[in-house]
Design a protein around this nucleic acid. Sequence first.
RNA 1: GGUUUCGUGGCCGAGUGGCUAGGCAGCGGUCUGCAAAACCGUGUACAGCGGUUCGACUCCGCUCGAAACCUCCA
Length: 497
Amino acid sequence: MENKLFIHNTLTRKKELFEPINPPFAGLYVCGPTVYGDPHLGHARPAITFDVVFRYLLHLGYKVRYVRNITDVGHLVADLDDGEDKIAKKAQVEQLEPMEIAQYYADRYFIFMDALNVKRPSIEPRASGHMIEQILMVSKILDAGYAYEVNGSVYFDVEKYNITHEYGKLSGRVLDDLMTNTRTLEGQDEKRHPSDFALWKKAQPEHIMRWPSPWSEGFPGWHLECSAMSTKYLGDYFDIHGGGMDLLFPHHESEIAQCQAAIGHESVKYWLHNNMITINGQKMGKSLGNFITLDEFFTGTHASLHQAYSPMTIRFFILQAHYRSTLDFSNEALQAAEKGLKKLMTGYETLVKLIATEKLSSPTPLPQGEGRIGEIKDACYAAMNDDFNSPIVIANLFEGVRIINSLADKKESISAGDLEMLKEIFTTFLFDILGLKNEKANDQRPLLDGLMQLVLSIRQKSRETKDWGTSDQIRDVLQKLHIIVKDGKEGSSWSAE
RNA sequence: GGUUUCGUGGCCGAGUGGCUAGGCAGCGGUCUGCAAAACCGUGUACAGCGGUUCGACUCCGCUCGAAACCUCCA
């Protein structure tokens, strides 16, 4: 593999050469959704970010096992701050089995991720299905002396761990500072140190979701499932662990500690984190009234949206920014993305119809082979190899579109080889790696093609007789049906909106 | 307050110690019956203040501003 992929490791804050532990295999674990609510914008970014990572690793020829968990146990309702289990709380309100809620929202998640053209991971394990693994991990940590039991609950002994290991190495935190900055809250009496975290929690009477364990009937601590499931499916030491930057501390920090304590060494080689999104420069929050679900985006039903935005528009918009940058959503920006994506897709449609024009006399023949087209290809790979820089890839695809349109206008010519390479660049990067797709294509297309061919041939006759009234009428009516007719030198063409 | 990201032209966003992505919008032009599309041309932007340097938007410090996390729970 001549491609040298460099990825930004949060652990070292540097770009490092990606060298899989057991080539050609590559293991990828990403923190998935907590299924207690409809999927929203916050779910889209990590899903798409790591979908591209997954797709690119596959493209490079790695045998990738991609694991993304479904968290279906024990969560708080975020805004209530009252210590209740998120899923259990929802269940009480809606009078449903907790697992019914989890199932419903997991299904919703899959539906919307499919719409965003996010590939299904290799394995999507559920926390509720891995109680034994989690309990075993708690036992190992207890045996290793890095945990203690109090009243049926088990806590990780961060203070002890920090003597020999560095708790905070991932997030840049120092334990002493954490202590100073920690407020005293109720319900912490069981813990020896404020930074200690639960490995196993004894269920209070109101907790509906509970499982038996050696310590109590209860539920696992919230960092545990990822440690247990990632190592179960990817091994004690695997390549990439990803997630949102909001999970850096304490979630991922604690995962490192748990694995170190249970296994004796760390389990992750490269940590990748995607940055957060904002909406009109603000964070997204239910209390701010800008909490927008993906369903609302796709249908345009949220008050702050001027229109509906298609799944591919969202995907393209997200990919136009680098995954480690914050990304701001606004109507203006989304509309720009919508137009840009359309330009790309129209460009590709034009490309497919192009024939090589090498032998035709042309005012400005393109340099061949290692010329412009080869440069674009190289630039696309260089961009992906530089920590998955999708914006640069997209910029290069736009350069490709410019060339395509010039070719279509007969302003430039291209060799058959370069034309093939250009097509290959688009199928590889636009569709396979960036995972974008042409939303216009559907089953009705052949029918539409035939009808439009008929309509345009009739219109052409009216144009030849300079019957502009009929010609314009056809075009205007079609426009109302969202079909745009374009008259060019070579005749008329059309496109469906 | 601490930790971690950031602050780029009208908007969104790449990037680099000196050669200045890309998209959208705007302006001028070509083409066109008109329109649309396309193509060509056009914008000395890099939060502020210091410092390092022959030279910084890019390195360092401070200030201002934004976001995530810093708590029980995933």
